[in-house]
Amino acid sequence: MTLRDVTLRDGLQLTGKLLPTERKVRLVRSLLDAGVPELEIGSLARPDLVPPMANSLELIAALTEEELDRCWVWVATPRHVEKAIAAGARHFQYCFSVSDAHNNANIGRDTETSIAAMPAAVDLAHAAGGSIQLCLATSFTCPFDGPVDADRVLEIACDPRTDGAADIVLADTLGQAVPGQVAELVSRVRAESPGRRIVYHGHDTWGLGVANSLAAVSAGASVVDGALAGLGGCPFAPGASGNTATEDLLFATRPQWLSPEVFADLVRLGEDLAAELDEPNRARATQGARSEAAAFEWVLRS
């Protein structure tokens, strides 16, 4: 399993505070230096609608090619891809919603229009020597229409116009899914759609973020998304809360690159960021790491 940290995009977009580019660069480098394999670092969403993303292009331009090789950028149109390429990005998450109602609220068009534009986005990404993901928001429920039919998710995943995507991201935008649902959808996508890496993007609204992520991995997902301190949520999805915490996912899965010392550094990084943003720290593993169980190696010593 690979962790992708999405603090710098989904984690920040609901905070209402624009971090300076230099601060974002430090965050990127701290996460990469810790060993986090992949990051989502920004969005080409309209800055008047999502102000914390306003300097995403500046952040991309400030990073090295080697750093950008491990970073993804959220896009919703071919024009977004063009702008991100000009800044230096090479990996793109082309996102739209399975639900028309949420796609209209989030991107300003219906789902069919987003699908129809995807081949042009794919061509641009590939011409730049990059890769692109198919990201399906509201893969489980929609804040406006309720439950989302899994058959519709599979219809989009198998649509020839989404060919060329290296990965498919299944997003539980509202955090309302339960492990059985997640496992079933991931299994179906793996069995019925073109062979590609499956990414699970969960939220912890109902306290099932880690459980759902583990269910996704057991069913065939190879990447899960998380954000430091459980920050984040969708500004266009009433009822959405923070992402599954990176700290919680790492404590649960303990990848080979994670040591108690690296975990401690990431806990402190999440604590500092949450305090800087005046946001609550929702990571349960951070609470554990600050406990008095001193004999446990994952507890922080200071």
Rank of each mutant, 00 (worst) to 15 (best):
E279M: 15
P194D: 04
G175D: 07
F236P: 02
S114A: 15
V186D: 12
G270E: 00
V81K: 02
G11L: 10
A150W: 14
G11T: 08
T162K: 00
G195W: 08
L32I: 08
G239H: 04
E155M: 07
N104F: 13
E192F: 03
L14W: 00
N106Y: 07
Q176T: 14
W74G: 00
M53E: 02
A120E: 15
L134Q: 06
E192A: 13
H201A: 15
G35R: 07
E66T: 13
T286N: 05
V189G: 10
I198G: 09
I60C: 00
G220S: 06
A157V: 09
G230R: 03
A219R: 02
M1K: 06
L214M: 13
M1S: 13
D5I: 10
V199D: 04
A171R: 03
A283N: 09
D159V: 09
L174G: 02
V6Y: 12
T162L: 06
H102K: 06
A45Y: 01
L258H: 06
Y94N: 01
T21W: 00
G16L: 02
L269E: 15
P119T: 03
A87Q: 02
T162W: 01
N212Q: 04
G288D: 08
I156H: 03
T244Q: 07
L27V: 05
L59I: 06
L124Q: 09
V217Y: 06
A120T: 14
Q287C: 11
T64E: 12
C234T: 05
I60K: 01
A61D: 13
D48G: 04
L124D: 01
E271T: 11
